[in-house]
């Protein structure tokens, strides 16, 4: 019996709707990068160990490398490309990452930004400890952690003022 090894799915990525055929074994990460050419989301370990591929799936940060695309039917996905405003205005968090040098090579940055965005959505005024606990799943080999934590604090501070 020839089994069906691909499906057509409908997903919304950064507010844009896509209808795409996907092989069952394609991960959401590969769907984004290969099929939708959204290469902002990075593949680092591809095994769920590093957090670089973090995206928001219906608002919740998940690892796109461990999410099969076929399971995303009807889902709303936000990637790093969807964090800035429609006119290109950077989010306060994105600007804070620049101001605080919250990156070095920048390869983990998309995942860091998506996790940090979710953190501030859940908890607009996190303590340093809460930041550390929330971000512990986003590894950075260059060691930009203190800039990242500073950036999250700066963005939270701005959120308070706004």
């Amino acid at each position: 019996m020839q089994s069906i090894q691909r499906q057509e799915i409908q997903v919304t990525v950064n507010k844009e709707a896509y209808r795409v055929p996907v092989p069952n074994r394609r991960t959401l990460l590969d769907l984004l990068r290969q099929d939708l050419s959204l290469t902002g989301t990075k593949k680092v370990c591809d095994m769920g160990h590093c957090g670089a591929c973090t995206v928001l799936l219906d608002g919740v940060p998940v690892l796109s490398c461990l999410t099969l695309a076929v399971t995303c039917e009807g889902a709303q996905i936000t990637t790093v490309e969807g964090l800035a405003g429609p006119d290109g205005t950077l989010s306060p968090l994105q600007q804070a990452f620049i101001d605080c040098d919250g990156f070095q090579c920048g390869f983990c940055t998309p995942g860091q930004l998506v996790s940090a965005t979710a953190l501030l959505n859940d908890n607009p005024a996190p303590s340093r400890e809460e930041i550390t606990a929330y971000m512990a799943g986003n590894l950075c080999r260059c060691g930009a952690y203190s800039g990242i934590a500073d950036a999250i604090e700066q963005a939270a501070e701005q959120g308070k003022e706004a």
Partner: peptide
């Protein structure tokens, strides 16, 4: 000084070798 290419790094626009297609 802030990184001169900070914007590319925080928007996902920075094209690495891995992103070349």
């Amino acid at each position: 000084a802030n990184r001169v290419d900070g914007r590319e790094r925080v928007t996902g626009a920075a094209k690495y070798t891995y992103d070349v297609q």
